[in-house]
Design a protein around this nucleic acid. Structure first.
Lengths: 197, 197
DNA sequence: TGTACATCAGTGAACGCGCGTTCACTGATGTAC
DNA sequence: TGTACATCAGTGAACGCGCGTTCACTGATGTAC
């Protein structure tokens, strides 16, 4: 197969529906990121995955970096939705906190490629975006919110808790041969220590 | 400058001293990794940095992956030495634990590129090496040793503590725009919670 | 002491590849008249 | 209702680049005799 040849299966969008390709591109990029590190993700590979020629991506993204950023935003939105859902299904305030933490870790362990994009990749590095507008801001706010009824100092506790959870997920992903205990056990022990009743 | 042209400054090693180049290569690779992610580190860039032609690297490493592994081993050895030194200069058992933690975090924050290689890169992924022979094993053992006099269950506590420290370092590196408190403050709070007196 | 020779520490050119990006273009389709 | 036309959603070829790896080689140097 030729490098920039579109897949035969695809037919082009109708007039006025060109924006659909944008969504397809972001989805395809996310799909590829489950298998390979973000640094290795090429624009041409994404085009191939969509079934479109490489220059077609330029209709929707000025460059590779912009595409990666779009993927980042979408994945952050998904994770935020997942933890929000989990919290919504939980019972009392302590259950809600635990649900947040478990859902966060599960997402990371089930989608290590995406987790890395969100929290360990240069794709997330942007000095021109103010803190409150970073895609992860809503997620952090939701941790603060769920921690608030349980804490006299939610800001301080959120930082430590986030670090703890991230540490568990990140190390598990990056050191898979280490004999890790089950994630829920670790989360429970972390919570017992960091947010004592 | 041509891609594979050696730098004019360098003169070749004397007969019998070819092994010196190996050390130069590993050092040069480590130097480059302070500036760019390991996935982007090319064999040719390392050769250029050493001042040697690209094929010269094959005299000492079968492929790019083997070179990365050598860098990994050397950096793990350095970090292990740093924390061991710090512990050696500390006072009582609690001081020793704190010294370990602070030295670990300092290394990560001062050498983010190297820290990523050690704990967040595919370079570290190897299924063929048994756990006890991984380059990070000695480091983990030293954490266990320093935790032992303070804990009835050092294994369990080491996992949580390692995760907490890694979380602090990794998030700081990857989310630099977040308003992080000073690292020693975070380490102290983490220790207070995870290893209560 | 002299010299032939083996070995060592590399070099230089070349290979095929995939990459990001640009440019001019094309064919289908909706729309104005 | 018919048709000219503008626009839309892309395509195809090409560019220059750096990459990992291979191959045959070269010149200096230590060593055996």
């Amino acid at each position: 197969m030729q490098a920039s040849a579109p897949q035969p299966g695809r037919q082009r969008n109708r007039r006025g529906e060109g924006e659909r390709l944008r969504a397809e591109i972001v989805t395809a990029a996310a799909r590829l990121l489950t298998q390979q590190p973000s640094e290795a993700l090429s624009l041409r590979a994404v085009a191939r995955e969509v079934g479109v020629s490489a220059p077609a991506l330029y209709l929707h993204f000025p460059d590779r970096r912009a595409l990666m950023w779009a993927v980042l935003e979408e994945r952050f939105a998904e994770l935020t939705m997942i933890v929000t859902d989990a919290v919504g299904r939980a019972g009392d305030t302590r259950d809600r906190l635990r649900a947040w933490c478990v859902a966060y870790c599960r997402f990371g362990l089930e989608h290590p490629g995406h987790y890395r994009v969100l929290f360990e990749s240069w794709a997330a590095e942007r000095t021109d975006v103010p803190l409150a507008e970073l895609p992860g801001h809503g997620l952090y706010q939701s941790l603060l919110a769920v921690l608030e009824p349980l804490s006299t100092n939610p800001e301080d506790q959120a930082v430590l808790l986030w670090a703890g959870l991230h540490g568990l997920v990140s190390l598990r992903i990056n050191k898979p041969s280490f004999p890790w205990p089950p994630i829920t056990e670790l989360v429970d022990r972390l919570l017992r220590h960091l947010v004592p009743i």
